[in-house]
Design a protein around this nucleic acid. Structure first.
Lengths: 126, 126, 126, 126
DNA sequence: GTGGTCTAGACCACG
DNA sequence: GTGGTCTAGACCACC
């Protein structure tokens, strides 16, 4: 459970794919705060990639506060993630920008505004 | 009208900012199909950037089918853009992926699913 | 009294947290020179961590001269701690370096020099 | 000016030394917002170290928002650094923790509270 | 055994 | 030319 897989055909770099999937698992509840992640070496061999690539992903997650890295200890999902309840002032602006970008691409790809809204309800709704 | 501006403080590369803004203007109707874009040299001097940077943006837009580039002729918004009505099979999957990524980041930033849906309705709604 | 606690959400390693807290208790007077520390095994079980982790902390404190370790005997706060009166030549330079580092981070975090000085007076003042 | 140097005898890793010095230069005004940093390759050869070590430092500065990294463009001190005026809620607590740590070490090194406060006024004062 | 740092070198993407 | 990604492998620090 909470498996991480790589797609060689993806335009995203491997370390980014790892970051995205860990975040997704955190959000879905598959990786609750405090859960230990696989060791960098373990995940590297599992995915058939280099240890440093996994390290890059873990460092990025650490910098974002999603993961807690400590010397000698297994990396864990940050225990204080659950406490965050403030919407954060700039966060909304940031998300809005991302949504506007998605909207432009979707409409140019031929989707109707209605179809987009409907898809959003599907993805964003519980 | 349909002005393009660059933000030096943006994490996005310049060519990306140009691409995003042209798309936005197309979607908003400010740049209807067939409209000529400013010449590469003109836009480059207007923005105070290198010609190659503008060229990169135009090429990207051409590759996505948003713009039509022809040797010796001014670049124009693709005339057949309006005819696209089929959402394209992989397009929906692509947009869904983008939305899922936005969702993960939004929730990790502390937004509630409700707030996100509400924001999406705001941005995606006509 | 002079309790030591661990914070799982802290980015600092456990042994470091122990070292910091013992130092703080010594400085505050809660652990005067000569005071015996809890045994390695006792503290390890109290905190629910490995004996070696506590040992590492005690060794670090011993190396810094804060604690006196003797084979077979309980570790104690170094009895001669009180006698130190000379600031030591390199000590000032070391502390100055630490303060400069704190200053850079504080200012980058948005604090004003005045706010920083005021906070320092609060923390450093008796 | 705004030179960066490495100290092989320092306990801090090289990439950390680069990070600290860039921050110090930003705070001192030697590197105002928008200033381009030396390219990773240039700085690497200047310091006689590997390119990836410099990259690690630049990535860390980018993650902290001190530096703006963009593909193909020279790294620059973040242009929006000047705009930050909010003290940030957790920032104060973070700085306070750092000061408390410095205080404990200073007193254990034999400095008096008065000497520490005086040094702080020297370092923190304009 | 776990993560941290550093090196060396290759190839890709952006301007 | 600039930064980005990835690999391979070595050695160190922490638990």
């Amino acid at each position: 459970m909470a498996v991480i897989t790589l797609d060689d055909a993806s335009p995203d770099p491997k370390y980014q794919q790892i970051v995205d999937q860990v975040k997704a698992h955190v959000v879905s509840g598959a990786l609750p705060p405090g859960t230990p992640l696989p060791s960098v070496r373990q995940l590297a061999t599992d995915l058939g990639i280099n240890v440093n690539t996994v390290l890059a992903a873990y460092h990025a997650l650490d910098a974002e506060g999603v993961v807690l890295l400590r010397h000698g200890a297994r990396a864990v999902i940050h225990p204080r993630l659950a406490q965050r309840a403030e919407p954060a002032p700039h966060a909304v602006a940031q998300v809005r920008g991302a949504l506007e970008r998605v909207r432009a691409d979707a409409l140019l790809l031929g989707m109707t505004p209605d179809a987009l809204l409907s898809l959003a309800r599907q993805v964003f709704g519980e």
